[in-house]
Design a protein around this nucleic acid. Structure first.
Length: 574
RNA sequence: CGGGGCGUGGCGCAGUCGGUAGCGCGCGACGUUUGGGACGUUGAGGUCGCAGGUUCGAAUCCUGUCGCCCCGACCA
């Protein structure tokens, strides 16, 4: 391929609305263009990377006998109503000319289960693994970060169907391994993390994240134990009990203090000269219509996912001012556990070991100091309810502490059990003659998001640095001076030789100054750059790896082909 | 949905006491140039997001509306 004939609209200036490095570079290097918020066109270079990603996934799916198919993008309303998902907020709805309702596919559990329930009758047909790579539509409240979070995106989604839970387990781990292979082949540094399954299923699930500053998710890691979890799902161990003070129980007398207008933890702590961790905040939530009060140490965040799970609540939100006042008898900012009645009172484990702390007094402009559990109040129960943070003990190896990092979720795998098969009647005849619901799993990779994650993970000040496995082209041959006929001949010959070997190669034959071509080569990120220029007089060409300017070396033109092939092999391995 | 910011040639921007739009890059032509985003000459390209309003006159003032970005909520 020749650069002069290829559509590579590179930009010198960064479009003003790009902030993330990946977004800037993908725009500047001519890989993507925006059409609307969260809606992007993939230009030839970007599309080649997407196709390479698909191809890597395809080959790993072949390896586990997972078969590619193609489900419709239009999903009939009735199908989504079977599982109660027609009204999910992110679904795009539309009507045909007869006023029949359809959704644009936002995920495909229903359509795939539809296929299975009509075609799988016997245990002998299971397990079955199926996947597709297709556009998904989700009306995201806030698209962001270029191609990281979009409303229309390309996704790999796979589904497993098994006879029983053991089989589902086997399929789940097959996919986990396939995912590792996929990301490794792309040279992508990733972590596997325990995660929250959201509403998709609350069984086992596992996230694959690329660690990068600009990630949307917070990951807590224990490198010693090789363990990680998404912060929203990371368990917190109950703290060690405090050592008993020498002088009795160490409790000071309860005291009511005036704190006019001091509502936030910072304000109260500041006024009373106490550290936030000596306060306990009392949060009032409404769970399925019933108010509950929750205690968390002042410097901690309540984890709503944990609370929702603990309460087994479908609907959970922070109470409004009026409800708070009704429950506590005080305006927002002064709620406390002392004297609180008529409401279920939960406390985070950490609160159990606190002594002489500060809380709201359930009256306007007042707080209690030296509050103590049992003496002054008693929670109905304790639970793990706070958000985990760096410095916490590792839940699986408590002798180590967790560190925090940001990550982009690029893959997520779930065990579904019979959630969808039961709802949709996907059953089969088991070996013992009974009728059972199929055990399912679902598995996703954000292909288009991966494009951004790959760039976030591999770029420098000059541009993108592609791994050969997914690079749009492996090699660029730069003709320093196109007017030089000898160089042209040599470049064309080398180009043709590499192409004949099946190596995707680009010949930069534009009538531009060399500097322009070098800048573009760096920006686009070809793993290997060959320059045919001054050295040709001595029969030499320059070869260098994009990732390492210092790797530049001159080789005799006759050895260029083998040197390039060897360099590509080296780059693939590392 | 709440908060903040921004809409002016393809891209980046300037242009508010209101007077009929400018700069850089890019683009076309010609010439010189050719190892890290060259230079000269010349040329094309803009209903100033849209709709109302105020005014003799609006990119500029007022009202409304649409779009885009960022933070948060949300993220099946």
């Amino acid at each position: 391929m020749r650069v002069s004939q290829y559509f590579i609209p590179t930009l010198r200036d960064v479009p003003a609305d790009a902030e993330l490095p990946s977004h800037k570079l993908l725009l500047r290097a001519g890989f993507i263009r925006q059409q609307a918020a969260g809606v992007y066109a993939y230009l030839p270079l970007g599309w080649r990377v997407i196709r390479n990603v698909e191809q890597v996934i395809r080959s790993e799916m072949d390896a586990i006998a997972c078969q590619e198919l193609r489900l419709p993008t239009l999903t009939p309303r009735e199908m989504l109503e079977e599982t109660g998902r027609w009204d999910v907020p992110v679904v795009y709805h539309l009507q045909d000319r007869r006023k029949a309702d359809f959704a644009l596919g936002f995920t495909h559990e229903e359509p795939i289960t539809e296929v299975i329930r009509h075609s799988v009758r016997s245990w002998r047909q299971l397990p079955t693994l199926l996947y597709q790579q297709q556009t998904k539509f989700r009306d995201e409240p806030r698209p962001r970060g270029g191609v990281i979070r979009t409303r229309e995106f390309i996704m790999f989604d796979a589904y497993s169907f098994d006879r029983d839970e053991e089989g589902m387990d086997v399929s789940f781990w097959k996919f986990a391994q396939a995912y590792r292979n996929v990301f490794r082949r792309m040279g992508l540094p990733f972590v596997e993390a325990e995660a929250d399954g959201g509403d998709i299923g609350d069984l086992d699930n596992r996230e694959f994240l690329v660690l990068t500053e600009s990630g949307e998710d917070t990951v807590l890691r224990c490198e010693e134990a090789n363990w990680a979890a998404n912060a929203e799902a990371c368990a917190c161990l109950p703290p060690e009990p405090l050592p008993a003070p020498a002088n009795g129980n160490g409790q000071k007398p309860l005291e009511l203090v005036s704190t006019p207008g001091m509502r936030t933890i910072e304000e109260v702590a500041g006024m009373l000269g106490a550290a936030p961790e000596h306060l306990v905040k009392t949060l009032v939530y409404v769970a399925d219509g019933t108010p509950v009060a929750v205690l968390v140490r002042g410097d901690r965040e309540l984890n709503e996912i944990k609370l929702r799970r603990h309460l087994k609540a479908k609907n959970l939100f922070l109470a409004d001012e009026a409800t708070v006042e009704k429950v506590t008898g005080a305006p927002r900012g002064f709620a406390g556990p002392v004297g609180l009645s008529g409401v279920r009172l939960l406390a985070d484990y950490e609160v159990a070991v606190m002594r002489n702390f500060i809380t709201g007094a359930n009256q306007a402009d007042a707080h209690y100091v030296h509050v103590n559990i049992d003496r002054d109040f008693a929670p109905d129960e304790y639970a793990d309810l706070r958000v985990a943070v760096a410095g916490d003990r590792c839940p699986v190896a408590p002798e180590y502490t967790l560190t925090e990092a940001r990550g982009i979720e690029v893959g997520h795998i779930f065990k579904l059990g019979t959630k969808y098969s039961a709802a949709m009647g996907a059953t089969f005849n088991a070996e013992d003659g009974s009728t059972k619901a199929v055990q399912m799993g679902c598995y996703g990779i954000g292909n288009s998001r991966l494009l951004a994650a790959l760039v976030e993970a591999s770029h420098d000040d000059d541009g993108i640095v592609w791994h050969p496995e997914i690079a749009p082209f492996h090699v660029v041959i730069v003709l320093a001076n196109v007017k030089d006929e000898k160089a042209q001949e040599a470049g064309t010959a080398l180009h043709d030789a590499l192409e004949a070997r099946g190596i995707p190669v680009m010949l930069d034959d534009r009538d531009e100054r060399p500097g322009v071509k070098f800048k573009d080569a760096d920006l686009v990120g070809y793993p290997v750059r060959v320059v045919i220029g001054k050295g040709l007089a001595e029969g030499k060409v320059e070869i260098r790896a994009r990732r390492d300017a210092g790797s530049s070396r001159d080789v005799p033109i006759g050895e260029a082909e083998t040197a390039i092939v060897a360099l590509l092999e080296e780059l693939k391995g590392a």
